[in-house]
Design a protein around this nucleic acid. Structure first.
Length: 1067
RNA sequence: GGGCGGCUAGCUCAGUUGGUUAGAGCGCUACGUUCACACCGUAGAGGCCACUGGUUCGAGUCCAGUGUCGCCCACCA
């Protein structure tokens, strides 16, 4: 005989978590079998970066995935949740390099490529372990045996294969591009990794002398710049090709604006218009003269150098700004680069070394200087040359690298590009024609807008941590040299195999699995390879196909050895992290091998992610999936909300407002965290969580403010003792860090904790009262009204929860379960069984229905609160291993593989639910009167109900429940019931409840209560009357609505009468 | 500059295709610890649904505009 009397009154989440996760893992419940007969359901995890620990956003993302996986598993699907982590190129290398510098004072060059990469692997091992540990603590049901890493052998193979395919398809080209150069990390960073910061700077005005001006023409042009040192890389000065027209257009636009503008703005705009006209009058002759000079290709002397540069006409020069002339530095400015594209003859001069110092393209005295020192030198020299006109103060919006926090230098570099035209179109089509559905739908716009730009994707990164590009290159002076030696060697290696076939070098190369392309040495900005260089020097690029499963950094083949002997060298760049992420749905399943996994689980079922990577990741997965496999990677994408702090700001470590999921799990439990997150996952809103510190001394919660969140130590409001915060880990002194740490948590999770505890206690009650349970089937005749009500509600809730989860309405599912479990199951059904357990002949049926209801509730809740439900499932097994109402079955070993409840449509009975509502209403009225009359809870009271015979028959059997739940005894039911002489009465729909209050009578109080009620009812009557008096309403509204109002009016008038009569009776 | 979203109780949020007197949790008030649970129970108070106009018999819900907060993209010699 089981004994549950020593179960604690509070759910012990820590114990449950420690007990059941290993149990699930040992039994292999999370392992998917690719050869299973069951229908597949698969999700790939958005791989967390190995840069650090998981935050609350990850907790949300993974909770949602786990909820779906667990439900689908219970529904009988063959579920694969593919876990893994991302190598996060720049981010991870930067973190490791920073630590290397801080802790050992070394740079990556001190370690060398191999040494640094080894260090990063160590880091990866440590953080991958930590991340996986966190996911397990959260309860994630990933198939850990298949854990992948974007830089492991299998992913590397997929990356090399994809690159080779693209290369052979001529979708990869070598181009020049202005990149955001991080001089600290010495790498290009993408636009997405750049942030802008306003800093104080200056605006310098310089004169450039004109060479041989004609009489009357200007002897110099004036330009202005915020970055004087870049003048050394100038290749032109531009002036607008039609300044008169440009001025006129501005004036017209301004006039249009003035017409639409409000009175307040009008004045300002008028003033602008006047200034513009003045400027036009003053500047136009000079600008037109300059424009004419540009047409005849006048040269300017570039000061401080021995170069001359042309004056050109280009629209980039805005006549309304500055002097109307602008210096052009194509290699170091995005817009100037565009000018070069339109005027190729001006050329581009790169003046920077990768480390941010000036290179040999500048005069000797500036070489090797940093940009900062060069700036001072240039300004000084310009001044002494008499060419510095003035210096203005100005605020400059300066681009910074998100990783190194140092300023970005625009820098012209050779880059690998993927041509996006067709690839982007294929990904757009997939969404437009509905093969991939993005939810909520509004995000399809983000996706399509971004893809429609079809900007080519620069995929190279000057990093050491990542997939090294499998292209070898070598310069040749002529075709003869190229054909003569190196490639022939490769061909020779395959001569034997070719002997009985047509022999050609192309075939040899194909057999050798290499693809060769040639680039004639040129300044062109975008070069495809398929044109053979006719003469002169060129570079040959050989992309090598690799069919081995080798780690990305150890890969070498015979061909490679041959090539390297011939002087070919491998690109030292690695691929953009997103290149490998884009392959994630199919690379993790074994592509390019046609594995059973790929066969079974691809396309995956759904992708769940956050909105900030719709473009970077989702779009690229779609196009890469289509390109490699011909199939979309997933038919559905669910974009979940972002987690914000109490001030509506995104949570992040650098802001100090991040909540660590482990702190929440520690304090509230994983179930509470999961339930709380699901409860907040609504379709439209981001999730706002006010953050508090928990004092480690007295457990008081201290509101996090914008100020205290970035303090390494905070003093408790309550006990006054200091504690350290998460901020101290990165910014605190040793002394701060030695203090006990105050966890950052959020009271939002109390909802989940309270709910879990409520459920725990309801289960405890059930268990204690199931002692002696016998698993006999029950017939419908045994069921009482409340049993049928509960079964009906249970079926309805099953339906609600299932369809909510299947359509990703997580909050709806959580709310539905919360309401049912708390307000219906606990507050009514469980309360009512207390009375039934006291009557021996009612005991068995009540036990069976209770066991069944609890069983179903556990199944429905399991995806949200897996640990709690598993804990109770096993306890329930001790007392009621065989359960069910009309059909009985032995429960399985774990709720996580139990069958998902199906909706028993025949049990849904709306009339029984309505009848039960009548009972609840009467109960509410009796309780309400007791409270309002101030009658002590334990004082017995008597009540009677006037109602029709049918209702009386229904409610009479419920008398014991009124006694146990309201301390009230019913004295009479039926149509002829009259209130006792001294009664508190309450009109209800079709009923009147009278509580005998002769012992507690207080005329004044009762009159005041009734008067209040009368006024409310009168107001209501009036509102319906006026609605019905409106002829248009009666004419136009649907008949059912009008009828409903009419019935309501009769009903409410009735109630009003009851109250008025009661007031009269008071005298 | 372009796009998207929010604005509903003190706080955090629900609110289906327009249709009774707008809901929940927390917090608040009163009462209650004997038998599942004080992480609890019972009852209650608390709302010009941001604002202005429109459509409609009827608007939190639909349309137009305004304000405000936030996010994304582009641009910023």
């Amino acid at each position: 005989m089981p004994d549950f009397s020593d179960l604690p009154a509070q759910y012990d989440h820590a114990a449950a978590q420690a007990r059941w996760y290993p149990y699930w893992e040992e039994r292999g419940y999370f392992h998917a079998d690719a050869k299973s007969e069951k229908p597949p359901f698969s999700i790939v995890i958005p791989p967390p970066n190995v840069t650090g620990a998981l935050h609350l956003g990850h907790a949300l993302n993974n909770t949602l995935q786990d909820i779906l996986c667990r439900m689908k598993r219970m529904q009988g699907f063959n579920v694969l949740w593919m876990p893994g982590t991302d190598h996060a190129g720049i981010a991870t290398q930067a973190v490791v390099e920073r630590r290397l510098l801080e802790e050992e004072g070394k740079s990556r060059h001190d370690l060398g490529r191999e040494g640094l990469v080894d260090r990063i692997w160590e880091w990866k091992a440590q953080y991958e372990k930590r991340i996986i540990g966190q996911l397990k603590q959260l309860g994630c049901s990933c198939d850990w045996q298949r854990t992948r890493f974007t830089l492991d052998e299998q992913c590397a193979r997929a990356v090399r294969e994809t690159f080779f395919k693209l290369f052979a398809d001529n979708k990869i080209y070598r181009g020049k591009r202005l990149v955001n150069w991080d001089t600290f990390l010495q790498t290009a960073v993408s636009d997405d990794e750049v942030y802008h910061e306003v800093t104080k700077g200056h605006f310098w005005h310089f004169n450039y002398p004109v060479i041989d001006p004609r009489p009357g023409e200007p002897t110099h042009v004036t330009i202005a710049t915020t970055r004087p040192e870049t003048m050394l890389g100038d290749t032109a000065v531009a002036v607008h090709p039609d300044p008169a027209a440009a001025f006129d257009k501005l004036s017209t636009d301004l006039r249009e604006k003035i017409i639409e503008a409000s009175a307040k703005e009008k004045g300002e705009l008028e003033e602008q218009a006047t200034l513009l006209l003045e400027r036009r009058a003053k500047m136009l002759p000079r600008l037109e003269m300059l424009r004419d000079m540009a047409r005849r290709q006048v040269e300017l002397q570039l000061p401080l150098t021995d170069r001359t540069i042309p004056l050109i006409a280009d629209e980039w020069a805005k006549p309304e700004l500055g002097s109307g002339c602008v210096k052009i530095t194509p290699a170091h400015d995005e817009n100037d680069y565009q000018v070069w594209q339109r005027n190729d003859f001006i050329g581009a001069i790169n003046i920077l070394n990768p480390d941010g110092t000036l290179n040999d393209n500048v005069p000797e005295k500036y070489r090797g200087l940093t940009m900062k020192k060069a700036r001072a030198a240039v300004v000084e020299d310009m001044e002494s040359a008499g060419l510095l006109l003035e210096i203005e103060d100005r605020e400059i919006d300066l681009a910074h690298s998100d990783r190194s926090k140092t300023p970005i230098e625009p820098y012209l570099a050779d880059q690998w590009f993927v041509e996006m035209d067709e690839l982007a179109q294929s990904a757009m089509d997939a969404v437009i024609d509905g093969r991939v559905k993005i939810m909520p739908e509004r995000y399809t716009k983000t996706y399509l807008d971004w893809l429609s730009e079809k900007r080519d994707w620069p995929v190279g990164r000057q990093l050491w941590w990542g997939h090294r590009i499998v292209v070898w290159s070598c310069k040749f002076d002529s075709q003869e040299e190229f054909w003569g030696a190196p490639l022939a060697t490769i061909g020779d290696a395959f001569q034997d195999e070719l002997s009985d076939r047509l022999s050609s070098l192309e075939q040899c190369l194909e057999l050798a699995q290499v693809c060769v392309r040639y680039v004639k040495d040129t300044d062109a900005t975008k070069t495809f390879y398929d044109t053979y260089p006719d003469k002169g020097s060129f570079t040959a690029y050989v992309c090598v196909r690799d069919e081995s499963n080798e780690a990305p950094d150890v890969y070498k083949s015979n061909i490679v050895e041959l090539m390297e002997k011939q002087g070919f060298i491998q690109s030292d760049e690695v691929l953009d992290t997103w290149f490998s992420s884009a392959l994630w749905p199919h690379s993790t399943l074994g592509w390019p091998e046609q594995t059973p996994e790929l066969e079974t689980f691809y396309p995956t079922s759904v992708l769940i992610t956050s909105r900030d990577i719709i473009t970077l990741w989702v779009a690229r997965m779609v196009l890469a999936g289509l390109y490699n496999t011909g199939k979309i990677p997933f038919p559905a994408v669910f974009i979940h909300p972002k987690i914000l702090d109490g001030y509506g700001e995104t949570m992040s470590k650098s802001k100090g407002n991040g909540v660590d999921p482990l702190d929440v799990i520690d304090k509230f439990g994983a179930d509470s965290l999961r339930f709380g997150l699901a409860y907040l996952t609504t379709e439209t809103q981001d999730v706002r969580l006010p953050v508090e510190f928990e004092c480690p001394h007295c457990q008081a919660l201290i509101q996090q403010t914008k100020k205290n969140r970035t303090l390494p130590r905070v003093e408790c409001d309550k006990c006054g003792k200091p504690f350290s915060t998460q901020w101290s880990q990165s910014h605190g002194t040793e002394e701060d860090q030695a203090l006990p740490r105050g966890a950052a948590v959020s009271e939002r999770f109390e909802l989940g904790r309270n709910f879990c505890n409520k459920l725990w206690n309801a289960s405890r009650f059930a268990l204690m009262n199931l002692i002696g349970y016998e698993p006999e089937p029950i017939t419908e005749g045994d069921l009482l009204l409340e049993d049928r009500w509960l079964l009906s509600r249970l079926a309805t809730v099953t339906d609600e929860v299932t369809s909510a989860l299947e359509s990703y309405h997580f909050a709806d599912a959580a709310r539905s379960l919360y309401g049912f479990a708390w307000d219906e199951f606990c507050s009514f059904y469980v309360e009512m069984t207390k009375a039934r357990f006291a009557v021996p002949e009612q005991r068995a049926t009540a036990q069976r229905v209770l066991a069944h209801a609890l069983d179903t509730l556990l199944r429905l809740l399991h995806p949200l609160t897996p640990f709690l439900t598993e804990e109770v499932w096993h306890l329930l097994d001790e007392v009621a291993p065989v359960r069910g109402v009309l059909k009985q079955a032995r429960a399985v070993d774990s709720v996580c593989v139990a069958e998902w409840p199906t909706v028993a449509a025949s049990w849904i009975d709306k009339s029984i639910e309505a009848q039960f509502v009548q009972f609840q209403t009467v109960m509410g009225a009796v309780r309400n009167i007791r409270q309002e009359k101030n009658i002590a809870p334990r004082t017995p009271i008597k009540f009677s109900v006037r109602c029709d015979d049918e209702t009386a028959a229904l409610l009479k059997p419920m008398e014991p429940y009124f006694a146990s739940m309201a301390g009230a005894t019913a004295t009479a039911w039926g149509p002829s019931v009259e209130p006792p002489e001294r009664a508190a009465s309450k009109p209800l729909e079709g009923m009147e409840v009278h509580v005998d209050i002769s012992e507690f009578f207080d005329v004044a109080a009762e009159r005041s209560r009734l008067t209040k009620e009368r006024d409310q009812l009168a107001k209501f009557v009036h509102s319906i009357e006026s609605k019905l008096a409106n002829a248009n309403f009666v004419k136009n509204a649907p008949v059912a609505v009008v009828e409903g109002q009419r019935e309501k009016l009769i009903e409410v008038r009735d109630q009003l009468q009851v109250v008025e009569r009661a007031i009269e009776n008071l005298g």
